[in-house]
Design a protein around this nucleic acid. Structure first.
Lengths: 102, 102
DNA sequence: TCCTATACCTAGAGAATCTAGGTGTCAAGT
DNA sequence: ACTTGACACCTAGATTCTCTAGGTATAGGA
């Protein structure tokens, strides 16, 4: 459990629109193969982000199978910036408690 | 919600034994006044850490009021090292997804 | 005496994520 | 033709974590 799922999804979408399965792969790769999110975590989170207006989706039928492609909205970009700042503050706070100088 | 409460408590106890209320203050200060944990979070977490053998406690009657003073056990030190590594890996993974070079 | 700070505790609620299932397409192997 | 595996989506329910909102008790100051 991370508590940072929304941030990860928004940040990944910041690099360009993608579908759910693709986002899992993107996060997996960009995290250095450390984060391997489950579909059962990602899809509900994307639905929630869409309901809150941070992302929007459209159906694509590119390669046979259906895909729901997500993209950041303007509000989502702001949310991403806000959550990224929150993360910086939080990780700095943890570093402070851990006593690691870096 | 952090997901890092145990790590924060263990790391704080790594600086020396302390009681629950004192740990809250210690974490508050070391985090640069960014983390302000609630008693309702801390006490159950300490009990859980004690049940799992990472910390041990004794009653102290120093200044009138009773205090339960906690200290890291050997197993707790190992758990702390493990969780600190986990945190480093996780925060590096998030940085990777965020695309921040630092 | 009353209020505040210190200090401990717990039950239950709320929220986040995972588990474990389900559906369907398509390509490759047998 | 059939089966298997990869891709792709979805949801209900369980689990886990943390917080809310209460409770108790002592000591000191107004």
């Amino acid at each position: 459990m991370n508590g940072q799922l929304d941030l990860l999804l928004l940040a990944s979408l910041g690099a360009g629109e993608a579908h759910g399965y693709g986002l899992i792969a993107r996060i997996h790769e960009r995290s250095g193969w450390r984060l391997d999110l489950q579909e059962g975590s990602v899809y509900p989170a994307l639905h929630k982000l869409e309901a809150s207006g941070s992302v929007e989706s459209r159906w694509a039928d590119d390669d046979g199978g259906r895909r729901r492609v997500y993209a950041l909205t303007r509000a989502g970009q702001e949310e991403l910036a806000r959550k990224a700042e929150e993360w910086k503050g939080f990780s700095a706070a943890v570093r402070g408690v851990l006593g690691t100088a870096s």
